[in-house]
């Protein structure tokens, strides 16, 4: 379990994130491959990225809640150039970046990449499911195509 990892050590595991006290525990959960989204204990609405209060009802009673990781591609772009990252080689082909609308709530979205699929086949509306990949030695939630239903 990484629940006990202190904030300094956590920052070192995610050099690509500007962590703060509102977002840190979402990333801490990734170290245990737990894909969680902030949910309000009072009104039960999810929101992302994590905010200090629920934007719908201003409750501070927020819980990082496991979600299914299932969703639908809402926005799709293929980077022909971009920031470097381990395992991303723009010389071999474009790198897909996809904003996925999660099945738990309308307009609740998470942006990552898609694996196990040729980039040119990644389409808006495509059903996707969570898959963990590695990024700089830490688990990183990505998506792959799933059978509809």
């Amino acid at each position: 379990m990484n629940e006990q990892l202190d904030d300094t050590a956590l920052s070192q595991r995610f050099p690509w994130v500007r962590l703060d006290h509102d977002t840190k525990n979402l990333f801490r959960a990734w170290l245990d491959r737990r894909f969680v989204i902030t949910r309000c204990d009072d009104c039960r609405r999810y929101h992302h990225p994590p905010k200090p209060v629920c934007p719908a009802c201003w409750s501070s009673a927020l819980t990082l809640t496991p979600v299914s990781g299932r969703g639908t591609a809402h926005l799709v772009m293929l980077l022909h150039q971009g920031a470097p990252a381990p395992g991303v080689d723009y010389g071999k082909g474009p790198h897909p970046v996809v904003t996925v609308e999660l099945e738990e709530q309308e307009h609740l979205r998470f942006t990552s990449t898609v694996v196990d699929c040729p980039p040119e086949d990644v389409r808006i509306g495509m059903p996707l499911e969570l898959v963990w990949i590695d990024r700089y030695g830490a688990p990183f939630p990505a998506f792959r195509p799933r059978e509809n239903g």
Partner: peptide, 20 residues
């Protein structure tokens, strides 16, 4: 912070919404 390909900075986001 180290930039990441999956960043939704505004310039990338206009491309993403263009796809939509």
């Amino acid at each position: 912070v180290v930039p990441m390909p999956e960043s939704m900075d505004p310039s990338a986001a206009y491309t993403a919404w263009a796809s939509r």
